[in-house]
Structure formats: structure tokens, C-alpha cells
């Protein structure tokens, strides 16, 4: 019980102090989980992170589930994740309530109109960064363009693009393997 509480509390603290999502959390995870508490080794943490990035969901949540699972099995995985999201729930709920009450004020609307411009740039920069690591050759470039155009032109759920491109990845790599042989 004590260890479950430790897991919850440790990840809650990390959720409360990291700004900017999964990547920003890695150094803090290394300090708290590897160096201070010795819950995992450095190598395990790197593995968790690598897998957390390429599996569904939020990277930080995936890593928290991994660490919790290693300590206390299924219950540990769930408790660590709940700890991680707990501060978000509290902080965002309070802020959302406040913003709803002030959203009719002219200056608040002006501020958010300015912020929306900034959000455009932040999304654009995120795309640039991801582009460099995910579009590595002509075929991945073709997938990128096809999904971009398809998603802008069609009212199709993103789920379909994910499923089709996973299948395309397997098909392309299989063909490549055959050609090499």
C-alpha cells in the first residue's frame, strides 16, 4: 500500500511541475525515478521512453504506466498514471471554470485572439520538428503528402489514415524485403 501511495505521489509531483509534455518530462523522470528512487535503471527508462513514443497515447502516460507496472504490477501501472494526470485535472478544471466566467470581457477575447496566432505557430513548429524525424525518404514523403491532402480535402476520421498508413508501412517494407532477395 505504501509503495502504491509512493508511486501516486511521485508521479503527481512530476505532473505538477513539468511544463510542455512528454519530452520535457524525461530529465525529471531520470532524476526522480532512476537517480533518487532507483525504481528502474537508466537503460530501462530509455527503453520505456522509446516504446512510449511509438505506442498509442500520451508519451508521459505510457512511461508512467511502464514504471508503475515494473514496481507493483497492474495496480502499480494504473496508480502511477492516475498520479500523473491528477494535477492536470485539478489545475485545468479550476482554470476552465475561471475562463468561462470571464470569456465575455472584450480584453479577454482580444488576448485569446492574439494567443490563437501563437498557437498556429506552435503547431507549425511541432510539424517541422516531427517532419525531420518521420519523413526520411521518398516513400515516407509520399505518405505524408497523401495524408495531409486527404485529411484537408475529406471529412474522414483520422482513425482511417492511421490504419491505412500502418498497413502501407508493412506492405512497403515487405515489398522492399522481397526486392532485396
Amino acid at each position: 500500500m505504501k509503495e502504491l501511495w509512493d508511486l501516486f505521489w511521485t508521479f503527481a509531483k512530476m505532473g505538477a511541475v513539468t511544463f510542455g509534455g512528454g519530452m520535457a518530462m524525461l530529465p525529471i523522470l531520470q532524476r526522480e525515478v532512476v537517480d533518487k528512487r532507483h525504481w528502474t535503471t537508466e537503460e530501462e527508462m530509455v527503453d520505456y521512453y522509446a516504446i512510449g513514443q511509438c505506442t498509442p497515447g500520451i508519451i508521459a502516460v505510457n512511461t508512467a504506466t511502464f514504471v508503475g507496472q515494473k514496481r507493483r504490477g497492474v495496480a502499480g501501472g494504473i496508480v502511477a498514471t492516475l498520479g500523473l494526470v491528477f494535477p492536470s485535472l485539478v489545475i485545468i478544471t479550476i482554470l476552465a471554470g475561471l475562463i468561462t466566467n470571464f470569456s465575455h470581457l472584450a480584453w479577454v477575447q482580444d488576448a485569446f485572439a492574439g494567443i490563437q496566432v501563437c498557437v498556429c505557430i506552435l503547431i507549425f513548429n511541432a510539424v517541422l520538428k516531427l517532419f525531420k524525424s518521420s519523413v526520411v525518404d521518398k516513400r515516407t514523403a509520399a505518405i505524408f503528402v497523401a495524408v495531409l491532402v486527404g485529411s484537408v480535402m475529406l471529412s474522414l476520421s483520422p482513425v482511417w489514415f492511421v490504419l491505412i498508413s500502418a498497413a502501407a508501412g508493412i506492405a512497403l517494407k515487405t515489398l522492399e524485403g522481397r526486392a532485396a532477395r
Binding site: 511509438c54 503547431i123 511541432a126 510539424v127 516531427l130 517532419f131 524525424s133 518521420s134 519523413v135 515516407t140 514523403a141 505518405i143 505524408f144 503528402v145 497523401a146 495524408v147 495531409l148 485529411s151 483520422p158 489514415f161 492511421v162 491505412i164 498508413s165 500502418a166 498497413a167 502501407a168 508501412g169 508493412i170 512497403l172 517494407k173 515487405t174
Partner: peptide, 14 residues
Amino acid sequence: MAFYGLRPASTGLI
């Protein structure tokens, strides 16, 4: 192999 296709698709969606 699946992630070879998934990564650029995820970038395309964003």
C-alpha cells in the same frame, strides 16, 4: 514496419 508508415502519417495529420 508499421511504424515506418505511421510516423509520416501522424505528421501529415497534424
